[in-house]
């Protein structure tokens, strides 16, 4: 009988260390071993849900809690990202907390997270992002959903380094990665043995 195998869309991309000798000012990495769930409040229970999880629903601002980061997607909707590996029961735990006030949808395998960092990270994203990411406008904690290179992206500014996390649908991850690595080439980023 055929064994099912879990294949990560960017599973062949080796980690890139900041000390790799790359002079492009761009570091690209795939974040593995994170759990993601999308949550929806029942009608009229938005405030209650936010209070329960100790998060906020301010558009464009991520909420950090001890166990996860919450990104507001729309009124009463958030994406929660935990550093716990898939299968660690993160989604189940959230579902228990939200019983009666909201819904949970597991997303760990449906999205891929690409971390872009380095002195040229902002300039790289500017090649495909329509949002103004200048430091006078966007800083640590900024998040937004926006299309880049025809692919829907949930963008999160992790720190003022700057470091960004880009969450893309798994089915588009390879295409998006190709665009990102190709565009980074204009800054001198070399894939070398990294990725394909």
């Amino acid at each position: 009988m055929t064994e099912f195998q879990t294949i990560h869309p960017l599973g062949d991309v080796p980690p890139q260390s900041v000390e790799s000798g790359d002079t492009s000012g761009i570091t690209l990495n795939v974040r593995h071993e994170i759990s993601m769930v999308q949550i929806f409040a029942r009608n009229g229970r938005e405030m209650e849900l936010a209070k329960k999880l100790n998060i906020e629903g301010v558009p464009g601002r991520a909420s950090e809690t001890r166990s996860f980061t919450a990104f507001p997607l729309a009124p009463g909707q958030w994406m929660l990202v935990s550093k716990n590996a898939p299968g660690s029961g993160f989604g189940t735990g959230i579902a228990k907390k939200l019983k009666g006030i909201g819904y949970v949808s597991e997303q760990s395998d449906s999205r891929v997270c690409i971390r872009v960092s380095g002195s040229q990270a902002r300039e790289l994203l500017a090649r495909g992002c329509r949002l103004d990411l200048h430091q006078s406008v966007a800083s640590k904690g900024f998040c937004a959903q926006t299309p880049m290179a025809q692919v829907g992206v949930l963008l999160h500014q992790v720190n003022d380094g700057p470091t960004y996390d880009l969450y893309v649908y798994s089915g588009f991850a390879r295409s998006f990665w190709e665009w990102l690595a190709h565009t980074a080439g204009q800054f001198g980023y070399s894939r070398g043995g990294r990725g394909h």
Partner: peptide, 10 residues
């Protein structure tokens, strides 16, 4: 009203 001013392409 939720996201702020965005490009028409979105």
């Amino acid at each position: 009203p939720w996201c702020g001013t965005r490009d028409e392409a979105e």
